[in-house]
Amino acid sequence: MGHSRVEKAASRERVLRVASRKVRESGLAGPGVAEIMQEAGLTHGGFYKHFASRDDLIAQAAAAALTERPVEVEELAGMGEQDRYAGLVDSYLGREHRDSPGTGCALVTLGAAAGRGDQALKEAYEKRVRGYLDLLGGNDSEEARAEAMITLSALVGATLIARAVADRTLSDEVLETVARQLTGHC
């Protein structure tokens, strides 16, 4: 008996959610089709009912990862400017974000891949960058835009470094120091 369109769409979404998380955890080269399908609760044989190829899935998963905003960011959008800024810095440079790349911001994990990627990936990455710049008040003035760009670069760079170093003490120090510098708390 065949699957309904609704079931097929739900299965496809489940595969994309798993692949999106896997892409954020291990980059574009990391996740395999069998692993993704198994985690999505589907058989490997059903893969081609949903995607033309692994490359098609990974491209769609990367785009999905870049369009998803963490819940914390959604909550920050409704706050006043000062609270939003401090909240974003605290959330982005928190240990939970560092330790959970699969559910964190894809700007950190997909930056290098987007730089080498195709036009669609670059555009998806750019859209997420612009979204954060807007959230940081980057459209208010030339000075505000410069501040937003510096802040976003510091957030992404500090998180990348904190995830990449082996020494947990240094990792924590990077997060704490950059957060302190950005929020002006010495």
Rank of each mutant, 00 (worst) to 15 (best):
A144F: 02
Q181T: 11
E81P: 10
Y125P: 08
K122I: 09
L76H: 02
T67G: 06
R5T: 11
P31W: 03
A86I: 12
Y132V: 07
Y85D: 07
Q60Y: 02
E81I: 05
N139L: 10
E74N: 09
V108Y: 02
M1P: 12
G184L: 11
M37H: 01
G32E: 14
A34W: 03
A59C: 07
G138C: 09
T103P: 01
G32F: 08
E96F: 13
L66E: 08
M149D: 09
A164L: 10
I36S: 00
V89P: 02
K127P: 00
S26N: 08
S26Y: 03
A154V: 06
G131H: 02
A106Y: 03
S53N: 05
L152M: 06
F51H: 03
Q38K: 15
G117W: 00
G138V: 05
D140E: 13
E123A: 15
L66G: 11
R12P: 06
S53L: 08
V15Y: 01
E123R: 12
V6C: 01
G94M: 07
D134M: 01
C186K: 12
E176V: 07
A86Q: 14
E35R: 09
I161F: 12
G46Y: 11
E176G: 01
R21P: 02
E123L: 14
T177M: 04
Y92R: 06
Y48E: 09
A40S: 02
Y92W: 13
F51G: 02
L135G: 03
K22N: 10
T43P: 03
H50T: 01
R180N: 15
R163F: 05
K122F: 06
A65L: 04
L155H: 05
